[in-house]
Design a binder for these strands. Structure first.
Length: 494
RNA sequence: GGUCGUUUGGCCGAGGGGCUAGGCACAGGUCUGCAAAACCUGCUACUCCGGUUCAAAUCCGGAAGCGACCUCCA
C-alpha cells in the first residue's frame, strides 16, 4: 500500500493517512445547495474529492463516499424574516420548493457527469433526514448543550466551551473573546449569545418548507444535516470530512461542536479543505455575483454585470477539469481565458500523446529509462494529492512517446506496455480525465478517416497536391486536423 | 478591526537552504511538396528591507501588495 500523506486542517500539517478500519475508508464531503446552477467554484471540491475518492479506490480501499444535497435549512442572508433559500426561490418562480430542488439537483448531476465526477456511494438529501436531525437536536438538548427559545433550539456555545474548550480549533479562531464581548448585547434576540447557532428554527407563518417537531413547526438549523447524515451512514467517527475552505467556519466548526457535545469527540479523523477559485483575484461566489456557471463555460457565453462577455470561447468539461487539476487543491486558482486556453492545449497534447502511444513500434532495446515514472506519479499523489506534479510527470511521458514516435529513441515492448499502463492509470483512473474526442461512432469515424487518408496518400504519391490539399482543407473545416509524418498521415479532432 | 494565508519568468502554476518542475506563449532550428504536429535549442524567475548561514527564492524578523474567514457561500 502506498503511504498517503494528507493535509489535516485540524493539525495544520500533513499526516500519514491511516483509516480507522483497515482497508476501509469513510468520507463525507459537503455537497451543493440546490437552489441555483453549479458554477466553477462548485467544480473544485467535486473534482478534488473525486480524485481523492478515485485514488483511495485505486489503492485498494473499499470506500464509502457520502456527499449530501442540501435542499432545506439554510437561511437567506438578505431575507430578514429568515426565509428558507429554497422557499424564496420557489415563490419567485411559482414552483414547489421540491420542484426547484429537484430541477437544480438534476442539473448538478448532469454537470458532474460531464466533468467525469463519479457519483458518490450515498447522496443523502437533507429533506429526507428531518427525523435524524430532530433526534440529533434532542440528544444535544439531553446532553445539556442546547436550549429552547420561543420554539427554536440553539446550541449553547458558552456552556460547550466551558466543558470542551475546542470551539474554534479547526478554523483557528478564539471564540472566548467573542463570547465575553457579546453577552450583554441586544435583548431582543432569542439567543443567549450571538455566537450561538440554531439547531432548529421555528418557521414564520409564510414559510413553506416546514416540518413538525417537539419544539415548533419549523426546519433544521444550518449545520445539523451533515452531523446527522454523516453519523447515520459513516458512524460516530469516520475518516475524512471534506469541503471548501469557506465552510470551515462556522459550518464545520459547528459540526464538530454538535458531534462533540453528544459523544465527546468530533466526527472525523482528517479534515480536508479545498481552496477557492478566484476571478480577477477575488473569490468566485454566489454572494459576490461574480460566478460563471459550468454550463456557461461549456457553451462559451457569460455576460457580466456590465454586459461584457467574459468568455472568449467555450471550454470543454475536460479542459475545466484539467485546469483545476493543474493547481494544487489547497492553492487558490485564478480564472482567466489565457489560463484556460493553456490548459486546453496542454490537455490535448496529453491526449494526443496517449493516442500516439498506440502506434509505437517496439525495439529490441530501450534508449530511455521509463521504470521510475510510475513511482514518481505515486509519490506526487501520496504527497497530499499533488496533481500538478503528477501532470508534469505525464508530460514527461508524453515527450518520451513523441520522441520514440519520431524514431529518435527506442523502447522495448515491455517498456511500451509499462508506459501505457502508467499513463492509463494516472490520466484516466486517478485524475479522472477522459478522451472527449472519441464519441459513440469512434469505430465508424476511424474507418472513414482511414479511407480518406488512403485516397489522399495516393494523390500525394502522384504529386497531386491540389487533391491532397483539398482533402486536408475540407477536413479542416470539419474540425479535423491532418498531420503528415514519416510513417504516413495521422489525424485528430480539434 | 481580529485571525489566517499568499506574493515565483510574458501568462498559468509546482517546489521549498546549494542540484533549479511542468504547461502555455514567444524566438531560432530539424523534418516536410506546403502546412500542422512532433523533436532540438533559447527565454533560467522567485515583492521589498534586514538577519541567520560557507550557501536563501527557500529559514527568522520587519514592511508593502493581494486575498480568505469573521454572515449565506464550494
Amino acid at each position: 500500500m502506498q503511504p498517503l500523506l494528507v493535509y489535516n486542517t485540524l493539525s495544520r500539517q500533513k499526516e500519514l493517512f491511516q483509516p480507522l478500519t483497515p482497508g476501509r475508508v469513510g468520507m463525507y464531503v459537503c455537497g451543493p445547495t440546490v437552489y441555483g446552477d453549479g458554477h466553477l467554484g462548485h467544480a473544485r471540491p467535486a473534482i478534488t474529492f473525486d480524485v481523492l475518492y478515485r485514488y483511495l479506490v485505486h489503492l485498494g480501499y473499499k470506500v464509502r463516499y457520502v456527499r449530501n444535497i442540501t435542499d432545506v435549512g439554510h437561511l437567506e442572508h438578505d431575507a430578514d424574516d429568515g426565509e428558507d433559500k429554497i422557499a424564496k426561490k420557489a415563490r419567485l418562480e411559482q414552483l414547489e420548493p421540491m420542484e426547484v430542488a429537484q430541477y437544480y439537483t438534476n442539473r448538478y448531476h448532469a454537470a458532474m457527469e460531464r466533468l467525469n465526477v463519479l457519483p458518490p456511494s450515498i447522496e443523502p438529501h437533507a429533506s429526507g433526514h428531518i427525523i435524524e436531525q430532530i433526534e440529533l437536536v434532542k440528544k444535544i438538548l439531553d446532553a445539556g448543550y442546547a436550549y429552547v427559545s420561543n420554539g427554536s433550539v440553539y446550541f449553547d456555545l458558552r456552556k460547550y466551551q466551558e466543558h470542551f474548550r475546542c470551539y474554534g480549533r479547526l478554523s483557528g479562531r478564539v471564540i472566548d473573546e467573542m463570547l465575553s464581548t457579546t453577552r450583554d448585547l441586544d435583548g431582543q434576540t432569542e439567543k443567549r449569545d450571538t455566537a450561538d447557532f440554531a439547531l432548529w428554527k421555528k418557521a414564520s407563518p409564510e414559510h413553506i418548507m416546514r416540518w413538525p417537531s417537539p419544539w415548533s413547526d419549523g426546519f433544521p438549523g444550518w449545520h445539523t444535516e451533515c452531523t446527522a447524515m454523516g453519523t447515520k451512514y459513516l458512524g460516530e467517527t469516520f475518516d475524512i470530512h471534506g469541503g471548501g475552505m469557506d465552510l470551515m467556519f462556522p459550518h464545520h466548526e459547528s459540526e464538530i461542536a454538535q458531534q462533540t457535545s453528544v459523544c465527546g469527540h468530533g466526527p472525523c479523523k482528517y479534515w480536508m479543505h479545498n481552496n477557492m477559485i478566484t476571478i480577477n483575484g477575488q473569490k468566485m461566489g454566489k454572494s459576490l455575483g461574480n460566478f460563471i456557471t459550468l454550463d456557461e463555460f461549456f457553451n462559451g457565453s457569460h455576460k457580466d454585470k456590465d454586459g461584457k462577455e467574459m468568455l472568449e470561447q467555450a471550454y470543454s468539461p475536460m479542459t475545466i477539469r484539467f485546469f483545476i487539476l493543474q493547481a494544487h487543491y489547497r492553492s487558490t486558482v485564478d480564472f482567466s481565458n489565457e489560463a484556460l486556453q493553456a490548459a486546453e492545449k496542454g490537455y490535448n497534447r496529453l491526449m494526443q500523446a496517449y493516442k500516439t502511444l498506440g502506434r509505437l513500434t517496439a525495439s529490441k532495446t530501450s534508449s530511455i529509462d521509463v521504470s521510475a515514472y510510475r513511482q514518481r506519479c505515486y509519490d506526487a499523489m501520496n504527497d497530499d494529492l499533488n496533481t500538478p506534479i503528477v501532470i508534469s510527470h505525464l508530460f514527461d511521458l508524453a515527450k518520451v512517446v513523441n520522441t520514440v514516435a519520431d524514431h529518435k529513441a527506442t523502447l522495448t515492448q515491455a517498456d511500451i506496455d509499462e508506459l501505457r499502463e502508467v499513463m492509463e492509470t494516472f490520466i484516466f483512473h486517478v485524475l479522472g480525465l477522459r478522451d472527449e474526442t472519441s464519441g459513440d461512432n469512434a469505430a465508424l469515424v476511424d474507418g472513414l478517416m482511414q479511407m480518406i487518408l488512403d485516397i489522399r496518400a495516393k494523390a500525394k504519391a502522384a504529386k497531386d497536391w491540389t487533391t491532397s490539399d483539398q482533402l486536408r482543407d475540407s477536413l479542416g473545416t470539419l474540425g479535423i486536423t491532418v498531420k503528415d509524418g514519416k510513417d504516413g498521415a495521422t489525424w485528430s479532432i480539434d
